[in-house]
Every structure is written in structure tokens, then in C-alpha cells.
Design a protein around this nucleic acid. Structure first.
Length: 165
DNA sequence: GCCAACGTTGGC
DNA sequence: GCCAACGTTGGC
């Protein structure tokens, strides 16, 4: 078997990405040039590895507001680039500064996320009210991961709940 | 502000 | 490699 001349496009994957609206809300993302923001500040190896190994341009993103008065899904976005080093890790003035990250081998990565549209807010309690979403990662007890994979079935259900299905 | 859950660090 | 201590996350 010879490999195909171009890599076959894999099925799109889906992700939930948490953002504190005080730092970057869905409105902030939509207002950015090209509605695209560099996803800075990921400082967790599992989340970094998702970006590096599993996320591809075009993947669907549920834009989630966390650490705020009304946590929940606030918009739809897409992965808009591959990964590159997150410059904030080398900035002593940044809260994301990591003095232990070797510049010749950066520890932390980011990718671009393009906001597609703001949706109604789908609050956490409403997500929890749907039994078919019970194993959504963000609903698990103690779930702190800022980037989590979302099953296609969950994605389609949530998009429908957002009134876009 | 509280606190449960989690990830990381570092002594051994 | 173990594991206690610590710092952080994030809903409430």
C-alpha cells in the first residue's frame, strides 16, 4: 500500500475551551481582529497536549465562560491555527510567566481560536439538567481542565440546545 | 470567602 | 518511586 499523496482529512473533532470573561469573553473574541485570539495561558500538560497532538484547524469549539457569575457556554468558535510557543511564558511581567521554561525548548504552547458567533448563555445548571450530557467532561466533579474533548453527539445536542440546530 | 478536587513539587 | 504539602481552579 502506498500512502495517499495528501493526508486524508480526518473527521472534525470538538472541544470545550474555558475562558474567564474578565480576561477574554466571547464578545472580546468577536471584537478582536478577524475575531481571532491567541489562546494564551494554558499551563497544564494535558491541555497542552490536546492542543499539540489532537486539535486541528477547523475543529469545533464550545466557548465556555468560567470563574464568573454565570458560568456556561457562551458561543461557538473554531480552531484557527496550529500550535506555536506561548510568548507569555517568557514575559516576567505576565501572570503566565514560567521562569522554568527553557527558551530553546518552550514548555507551553498556544493556538489561535476564531470566534464564530455569540449564542445565548447555556448555563451550567441547564447543562446538568440533561441526562444525555451527563458524561460531558466539564460536568464531572472536580473537572478543572481548561480544554476538554467533546463527543460529536454531545456537540450536536448542545448546538441544538443553543437554538442553532 | 469557602472548600473540594486536582496537579505539581520536592524530600526521602 | 512514594506521598505529603502546597498552590490553583472554579463552582457555590
Amino acid at each position: 500500500m502506498t500512502p495517499p499523496p495528501t493526508a486524508p482529512a480526518r473527521a472534525p473533532r470538538y472541544w470545550l475551551m474555558k475562558s474567564e470573561p474578565d480576561e477574554c469573553s466571547i464578545d472580546d473574541a468577536l471584537a478582536a481582529p478577524g475575531a481571532t485570539v491567541p489562546w494564551t495561558g494554558v499551563r497544564n500538560y494535558q491541555a497542552r497536549n490536546f492542543m499539540r497532538d489532537d486539535m486541528q484547524v477547523g475543529d469545533g469549539v464550545l466557548f465556555y465562560h468560567s470563574s464568573c457569575a454565570e458560568p456556561g457556554i457562551a458561543g461557538i468558535a473554531r480552531v484557527a491555527s496550529g500550535t506555536r510557543p506561548d510568548p507569555t511564558q517568557f514575559d516576567p511581567a505576565s501572570p503566565y510567566h514560567d521562569p522554568k521554561s527553557p527558551p530553546e525548548q518552550p514548555r507551553w504552547l498556544l493556538l489561535d481560536v476564531q470566534a464564530l458567533r455569540k449564542t445565548r448563555l447555556l448555563p451550567l445548571p441547564e447543562l446538568r439538567s440533561h441526562p444525555e450530557l451527563a458524561d460531558l467532561r466539564v460536568l464531572q466533579k472536580g473537572s478543572r481542565l481548561s480544554i476538554t474533548p467533546v463527543d460529536a453527539a454531545h456537540w450536536h445536542r448542545i448546538v441544538a440546545l443553543l437554538g442553532e440546530g
